[in-house]
């Protein structure tokens, strides 16, 4: 995740050859003042993040080595690594959660970023009303995910709207199922709705990337006789590199954290086919009142996301 940090340091380092000049003295003084000002200016945000992110994470970290209960008259006991052992050895639902989370991310990341790029190219055309299409695609993004989950839950029923539409569009050839009640369709159904909700956001990001590519590059490519695909391959795609990294990272984090849709629509079922790590952590830590165990699952989750982020950063590093 440290990836973007490098990208935003273009003006950072002072140049050595400017030493011993008045400019350098002024700069040194200004740097000292800069220090003081900098501390003041990052202090509020840092303090708030410490209080409301770092402290709770550390609390969760500590709880994960205890048998703390949400509701109990007994004080928590230190249990060492018991919770972690339990997760990997005697909790089949945890293992399913792990698998489902990976499957979800593995499908959503390429599909959503690909569809978003396609849509971005569509709405980057110089056509009338194109702005309105951008707006329409963006509308699900501004709608609450709770509202959307309730709505799609209703539409996914056996006698629901989705099946009714499928039936009409295919003239009765496709007989829909009870999408969320079927072990083989529940996760795909949630994937569709998740992409539906979020893809507009990433479309806009791709669009911003597309619009930063100078038109002259395309002109030049056309002069060389490049067709549409070659233009995409040689001009568009290389120009979208940093956008691509950004999109990859944000979708991955978002996909790995899948929770609300599961909580509202399937509660992890049928037969654990939609349970995810975050859902399982909340389920164990809150609904089943095993705070210590839930915290341990959260901790495992953090480590996994961190590792994936680092791997992504390594794979997408600038190869100079």
């Amino acid at each position: 995740m440290a990836m973007p940090a490098q990208q935003i340091t273009p003006h950072a380092l002072p140049d050595d050859d400017a030493a011993a000049t008045g400019r350098a003295r002024r700069r040194a003084r200004s740097a000292r003042e800069g220090h003081r000002s900098a501390y003041w200016m990052v202090a509020p945000a840092t303090l708030l993040l410490l209080l409301f992110l770092v402290v709770p994470v550390l609390l969760a970290f500590g709880l994960s080595f205890t048998n703390a209960r949400l509701i109990s008259p007994n004080p928590p006991r230190f249990v060492g690594l018991d919770n972690f052992v339990r997760a990997f050895t005697s909790d089949p639902t945890f293992v399913r959660s792990l698998v489902n989370t990976f499957v979800f991310a593995a499908v959503v990341v390429p599909l959503q970023s690909g569809l978003a790029l396609l849509m971005a190219i569509l709405v980057n055309q110089k056509l009338r009303f194109v702005t309105w299409f951008r707006v329409v695609y963006f509308i699900p993004v501004v709608t609450s995910i709770v509202v959307i989950s309730i709505l799609w839950d209703f539409m996914y029923q056996r006698d629901g709207l989705v099946n009714s539409i499928l039936d009409t569009l295919t003239f009765g050839a496709v007989q829909g199922t009870n999408w969320l009640g079927n072990t083989s369709t529940a996760l795909p159904a949630i994937i569709v709705l998740s992409i539906w909700q979020a893809v507009g956001f990433h479309m806009i990001i791709w669009l911003s990337g597309l619009q930063t590519i100078p038109e002259e590059l395309y002109e030049a490519a056309r002069m060389d006789g490049a067709n549409a695909w070659q233009q995409f391959k040689d001009v568009t795609w290389p120009g979208l590199r940093s956008t691509m990294v950004f999109i990859l990272v944000t979708i991955t984090i978002q996909a790995l954290g899948l929770f609300v849709q599961i909580d509202v629509m399937t509660q992890g079922g049928p037969r654990d086919s939609t349970t995810t790590l975050v859902y399982h952590a909340v389920q164990q830590g809150y609904r089943r009142q095993e705070t210590g165990y839930g915290a341990a699952i959260s901790l495992i989750f953090f480590v996994i996301v961190l590792v994936i982020a680092l791997v992504q950063r390594w794979l997408t590093r600038e190869k100079d």
Partner: peptide
């Protein structure tokens, strides 16, 4: 509180075709 949550899940799993004996054993565990 825990029995309720375990029972709901086991019942739904069985409804959805899970093996009865092993699902119930897991719930008991």
């Amino acid at each position: 509180a825990v029995i309720s949550s375990v029972f709901e899940r086991a019942g739904k799993d069985i409804m959805n075709g899970a093996d009865v004996q092993s699902t119930l054993d897991q719930a008991v565990q």
